[in-house]
Write a protein that binds this DNA or RNA. Sequence first.
DNA 1: GAATAGATTGTCT
DNA 2: GACAATCTATTCT
Length: 215
Amino acid sequence: MAPRKPRAGRGPAGLLTVYSPLPRSFYARPALVVARASIGQLLVHDSPEGLSVGRIVECEAYAGPDDRAAHSFGGRRTARTEVMFGSPGFAYVFLVYGLHVQFNLVCAAPDVPEAVLVRAIEPVSGSALMAARRGMSASKKQLCNGPGKLCRALGITMNHYGEDLCQGKLYLSRGSRSRINTAPRIGIDYAGEWAKRPWRFFDPDSQYVSVAPKG
DNA sequence: GAATAGATTGTCT
DNA sequence: GACAATCTATTCT
């Protein structure tokens, strides 16, 4: 099939920007590496309602069967975790607390179930559409500073489970570099010692990080 | 600003 | 039947 056309949109300063998917090789690395590399990249959703783009400012690594906090801990392979056992560069989407969607990047190699949870983005393009989806003002920084919020803002749903991030309408595109800090992951206190690992990565200069850095 | 409770459903025991 | 990789409204200070 023909390679997909890069999608053009208006960036922050009104400049014409072209977005195109990062190659699968970006994802074919350990989750810890991908998580760090993802900070500053752009998350693009070219949906029927329009284009929305955000710069990733926070994410977490969930590293395979050894990580008690990962859904794939112990090699657990179910209908839900199945996509993590496949090729890298696909979307692992799941529901928490009965109502919030979480978006993850499948990493590493087939049969190595690692993933990166995208926790926060800052709006780059299509913030009006994001605000409409969220039912709030576009100027608010709470627009997508959380894993559930950014999925709502970008229109990511369970229907995106297993989507190819190298071929479809939902993908990462090359962004810019920034400072990167680390911290323990959020909301996984049940994971014991694993909960303390500094596997959360964020841009300390961004106002859009979900939980204020404690230092 | 900080703390608390309630929402709500797929997934696994 | 319990729990979950969260968010929001509400009730304090």
